[in-house]
Design a protein around this nucleic acid. Structure first.
Lengths: 161, 161
DNA sequence: ATGTTTCGTTCGACCGAACGAAATAATTGG
DNA sequence: CCAATTATTTCGTTCGGTCGAACGAAACAT
C-alpha cells in the first residue's frame, strides 16, 4: 500500500469516527433537553424554514394534522416553541421556536467551539483552506447519499414537501 | 476580520453542515432499514463490542432485561441479529449481528466512498495529512463534548436501570 | 445434595405518539 | 350572504416500546 492509499484509508476511517461522534452528540443533546426524535426534527425544521403553520409543519415532517397538534402541544409544554396568531389567516396558527431555547447549553457550545478554534492553530493557511474545502465538499456528498437513500426507498411513499 | 479569522469561521460553519448531514444520513439509513433508534443503537453496540449476552446488552443500552427480550425479538424478526447459544453458560444467550446485514446498501456506500476518494485527489500529501489529523482530533473533541453533556445531565438523575 | 443466586423469558400493564373521523372556526367565491 | 373550502383541534383508538414481577432452567456454593 502506498503512502497515498494509506492516507486515503485513514481519511475514510477518521470520517466515520467523526460521523458517529456527531450522531452521538446530537442524540445526547436531544436526550438532555428531553426531546424525542420527532420533536427535534420539528424544531430543526422551524429553525431552518422560519415560522410555519401547523399544516406546513405537518407536510415537512410527514405527519398527519392531528399529530402536529400533539407535537406542538408537547413543544410548548417543554418551552421550545410557541403558537402565535397568523395575521394573514385567523384560522391558522403559526408555530415558531422560542428564541433562546439553547441558552442553558451555551457554555458547552462555547467550550467546543474554543476547542476547535485552538485545534486549527496547528495548521497553516494552505492546510486550513484544504480542511474547509474538504468539510464543505464532504457535507455536500453526504447530502447526496442521503437523498439517494430516501428517493430509492420512497418511490411509493410521497413526502410531498 | 482577518483572513485567518475568516478561515476559522468557515471551518466552524462547514463543520456544522457536515454534522447535520451526518445526522440526517444516519436517520435516513435507519428509516430505510425499518429500524428504531433503540434498535440501531443496539446493533451499533453489538458491532463495536462483539457478541454480548442479553444482560450485557441491557446494561450498555440502559434497558431493563425484559425490554431486551423484546428488542432482540424485533431484531431477529427483521433479520439484523440472532441469538446463539453461549457455550460457557447454558442459561445465557449471546446476541450477535448478522454478518451481511448491510449488503443491500453496499452500492450506496461504495458510491459515497468513491466520491470521497475522488475528492481528496484535490489535495497534496501535506494537505491530506492535515485533513486526516483534523478529522481525528475533531472527533475526539466532539466525544468529549458528548461526555460533558451526559455527565452534567445525570448528576441527579441516576439511570440505575 | 440442596439451597441460593443468576440468566433470560413470559405476562400484564402502562405511556407516549401516531392516526382517522368528526367537530369547530374562519376564509373564499359565487 | 350563504355554501363550499380550508385550518386546526378534539375525540377515541391503535400500536410500539418499556417496565416490574413472577417463573423455569442452569450454575454456584457450602
Amino acid at each position: 500500500m502506498t503512502d497515498r492509499e494509506d492516507l486515503t484509508a485513514r481519511m475514510l476511517a477518521a470520517g466515520r469516527e467523526l460521523s458517529t461522534a456527531a450522531v452521538m452528540f446530537h442524540t445526547a443533546l436531544a436526550a438532555r433537553q428531553g426531546l424525542s426524535a420527532t420533536e427535534e426534527k420539528a424544531l430543526d425544521l422551524l429553525d431552518r424554514l422560519g415560522p410555519l403553520t401547523a399544516r406546513q409543519l405537518a407536510a415537512h415532517a410527514s405527519l398527519a394534522p392531528a399529530s402536529v397538534t400533539g407535537l406542538v402541544d408537547r413543544l410548548e409544554r417543554k418551552g421550545f416553541a410557541r403558537r402565535v396568531p397568523n395575521p394573514a389567516d385567523k384560522r391558522s396558527v403559526l408555530v415558531e421556536t422560542v428564541p433562546d431555547r439553547l441558552t442553558g447549553l451555551a457554555p458547552l457550545f462555547d467550550h467546543y467551539v474554543a476547542s476547535l478554534t485552538e485545534l486549527v492553530t496547528r495548521y497553516n493557511d494552505i492546510e486550513l483552506a484544504a480542511i474547509v474545502d474538504f468539510l464543505t465538499e464532504a457535507a455536500a456528498r453526504q447530502r447526496d447519499a442521503t437523498r439517494l437513500l430516501k428517493d430509492d426507498g420512497e418511490t411509493f411513499a410521497p413526502d410531498s414537501r
